[in-house]
Design a protein around this nucleic acid. Sequence first.
DNA 1: CACCTTTTTAGAATCATTATAAAGTAGATC
DNA 2: GATCTACTTTATAATGATTCTAAAAAGGTG
Lengths: 132, 132
Amino acid sequence: MKYIDKLRNSGLRPTKQRLQICKILFDVEKTFHFTINELDQKIKKQIGNKISLATIYNTVHAFEKKGYLKQIPINSNQAYFDTNVTDHHHFYDLKDEKLIDLENSDVGPINILKKINGKKIKSVEVLVKLED
Amino acid sequence: MKYIDKLRNSGLRPTKQRLQICKILFDVEKTFHFTINELDQKIKKQIGNKISLATIYNTVHAFEKKGYLKQIPINSNQAYFDTNVTDHHHFYDLKDEKLIDLENSDVGPINILKKINGKKIKSVEVLVKLED
DNA sequence: CACCTTTTTAGAATCATTATAAAGTAGATC
DNA sequence: GATCTACTTTATAATGATTCTAAAAAGGTG
């Protein structure tokens, strides 16, 4: 029920596929990071059936637009998404290609002094790359 | 001469193509941001002749590895490189898809409190996304 | 010059992502 | 619940950046 309302309130029809993806993404204790490919695997394993890749892309992008997911800026050959949409940062382990959350309190306040005319700040993201 | 030495000192043979790319990347007052595609265009325009795309990729990656370039972490369909390898940060204008330098002094010190066992910090990069 | 290694190159291959357009479904209206 | 319309899903093709391949070219050393 909760996801039906969530989707309806965002102007997204609560289709079977979207509800299944919601279940996988949001029906867990902890937030997590994923790629489209990893999500596809998870759907196959947990739901049994398969959802078309195009639908997965569509849904993830729709959720991102609605603010239910965010994309994490890293140089990778594929896009990483985060179910934690609160203001926080990341470690990126270059060797394992894994992301680790960095709480805001682990970084401290960041005050951007420079201003750009006519533009406003949408987000401030810190990426800390790790090596061995 | 200076680029010949620079390349030799890094264990890279100073080939015609590498020297031409050095000229374009480092023979200018200001540092700048570029994509492979933009670099390719610039080579065609400034040098006249064409360097194979594969060579441009190879060279840029070699220079990155040697620390003469760095890649900027943003979510884009293509990789952005920076000729400024000093410790600094970026604005990313989401509308224009343009990068703007953010000096360290415009951000202030960032102290990462969290430690990850067995890993050390290679870089700390701040990306500030801008919207209208 | 002769030799060996590194580099360049065109073109093919790869792989994530996006577009297409046909079939299916949700939700409103009667 | 039948009907209609707009929104979704889907398989598949298309795109586009990047990487691979393997043959030709060039650098460097003796």
